[in-house]
Design a protein around this nucleic acid. Structure first.
Lengths: 378, 378
DNA sequence: TTGTATGCGTTATCAC
DNA sequence: GTGATAACGCATACAA
């Protein structure tokens, strides 16, 4: 290979000092041999590229990251060499000296089947556009494992962190500030601990309740998620309670059920409400899954909707309303939360200190029965 | 603080050399001052802990990672010091010398609204149990951006990679082997490029078709996903075609529709099939979303299911069948794929070379109408 | 058992 | 514009 280009000879000479370095490597190389027997050399480094291009490693570094600081000629030579060796920068070394990893951590509880994926997806895509990569940590239960999971993220050198919700053990915030990592809380509002990206749960509830009140409903029920370990379910219930109180209408205690989010739970909860023989004329559901299950229960029981009982729902996934148009929903800005969280973190990482406390808009959706209903208004 | 413990005095003395180091840091410290004006010191390092504990940095390193190589007394002293400083290891430095980052990359296309989240979740949780963290990369379109996204992952030093599907540009596999990174292809079977974790699409199709054939159906339709850019949709169609051919029954070309996955698409596709006035007696749907939309269309059209038209579906999310029990489905091992992919990679990372080509089982689910149907068999 | 010294691959500070 | 060289923080081989 060195016969091909006159410069290559010079390379060989220049390589001498580097080779000294290489000889010293004998011991580590033996360690490296612990892996497969293969003839495979360790991945090319800056020095390798430099050697091949006949320049110093510093020049290679600049050619790759600050092309305009380098002469046209050498730049091309370096790029060619890098290309030929399939050079890929070692992010660990870079992170070590740069003190940043181009990595952002996301700390969210398990997200199977819920709307978190949409949010995470939006977050990832926003960050990716700025060359950041998302390190995902999804501890089993939101309580307990948070600090440990965060430690794992910090240890991996994340430059910033996105959290779900505002309620975390103090150690979480302590570690975050101790490590001086920008962070943002998604699906939350008004935390004294830092910046939140979310929406006004109270407003969302108001939209639904205003609508129901305007239709003349005076007594309504609520089938929501379990509040004990779910900050969002808690805030949702609170918002609803306040909105209802404002209208002077009634949320009967017997018409309130806390269940896990799910089709079956919605079905069973609604069945239970029907059996209780209440006088409610409307039911609000905490999310799509519950609403869908509830509507199935009503359909089976032959209860006309909204003829006899109105149903409204908070809408994470936009499918309950789709399946059952008479359902009035509030569309929650799931994707938007991920995007805004990403944008905020990126600004922080660029050194800005944006006051990003804005709440994202929610939207009431009252559909006409356009045809997708299995059995609307029967 | 140093007056509290006699040993602390010794610490101060031993600290001298360390402090020299600290003084040398003056320039870097100034660089660090580029950020906020704060009084904040850079995060504690091994040396800081060593200084505080009155031992060498090597001892601290061992005390933290190989506790059994250290005497009880010093170990406790070191741990206390680390605790007090809130020491968190610098993963970049560790990765640089260890040549591994305890990080695994996942390269999957956008996953909003599909079943990928379930799989990713399972993958993450499996890896987390072994102290690995997941670096998520979700390029916009599966084609094109793959290599760049992979490069980003490799640059960040991922120890292994999980891919979705087996069809990737050659550069992807080239880079993976060049960097000697174990990888696994999820939702795929039999790739010459490497190990797959998936299920037998043909078997899944057979389960459905066998069932339909046993019920006497001789001519069926198919509403599936778009095959052009979707490897899984393609394999699904292929499996179905083969199963149908085996039974000598007929999949009429006019009864085949390729659409995007979604409720509306399923609804419209089914509406279209009805309008075509075909003689089919059963329709297979490519996934839950399509099936749900299709069933809504049938319900609206007043077509009894399965009385007049049977519907069967591949089942990613288990909700279509839930909402509409007469729907026969094949449960696909989504979560299991994530788990197995994780386990395989972990084994590889431990140095094993498992022959992990097993296909995960699929399961035919024929439900009785247990009560969750809005209007079963009407 | 513990201390010392070296290298991991990169960026940045200096000279040239 | 380019080449040496010193960190970055950690793990480890080798001495003690």
């Amino acid at each position: 290979m060195s016969t091909q280009n006159p410069k290559a000879a010079r390379v060989a000479i220049n390589a001498a000092p580097g080779m000294t370095n290489g000889t010293t490597k004998a011991a580590p190389a033996a360690t490296g041999a612990k892996r497969a027997v293969g003839t495979s050399r360790p991945r090319a480094s800056l020095v390798d590229v430099a050697t091949l291009a006949g320049v110093s490693s510093g020049t290679v570094s600049r050619a790759l990251t600050r092309p305009d600081m380098i002469s046209q000629a050498t730049r091309e030579r370096v790029l060619a060499a890098a290309q030929r060796l399939g050079y890929v920068a070692n992010g660990a070394a870079r992170a070590l000296v740069m003190r940043r990893s181009m990595t952002v951590g996301a700390l969210v509880p398990r997200f199977g089947g819920s709307s978190f994926p949409t949010m995470i997806q939006a977050l990832e895509s926003t960050l990716a556009a700025a060359d950041y990569t998302l390190l995902l940590s999804a501890p089993e239960h939101s309580r307990g494992q948070g600090p440990a999971a965060l430690a794992a993220l910090l240890e991996r050198g994340v430059d910033a962190v996105a959290l779900l919700g505002a309620q975390h053990p103090p150690q979480v915030f302590a570690a975050l500030t101790a490590h001086q990592r920008p962070f943002v809380m998604m699906w939350a509002q008004h935390s004294p601990q830092g910046v939140c990206v979310g929406f006004d749960e109270g407003e969302a509830a108001s939209l639904l309740v205003d609508h129901l009140a305007a239709l003349g409903h005076r007594e309504i029920g609520f089938v929501g998620g379990r509040t004990e370990h779910n900050e969002r379910a808690r805030r949702r219930l609170l918002g609803l309670t306040l909105a209802i109180a404002r209208h002077g209408i009634r949320l009967a205690p017997q018409a309130m059920l806390e269940v896990d989010y799910g089709f079956a739970q919605g079905f069973e909860a609604m069945t239970e409400l029907l059996q209780r023989g209440l006088t409610i004329t409307a039911v609000v559901c905490g999310n799509d899954y519950l609403a869908t299950g509830a509507l199935a229960a009503l359909a089976q029981a032959g209860v006309p909707v909204p003829g006899q009982l109105s149903v409204a729902s908070f809408n994470d996934n936009d499918f309950a309303a789709y399946l059952y148009p008479p359902l009035t929903t509030v569309r929650l800005p799931i994707r938007e939360m991920g995007e805004q969280a990403g944008h905020y973190l990126l600004q922080r990482l660029r050194g800005a200190q944006p006051q990003h406390q804005a709440l994202l808009p929610v939207e009431l959706i009252v559909r006409q029965s356009t045809g997708y209903a299995p059995r609307a208004q029967e």
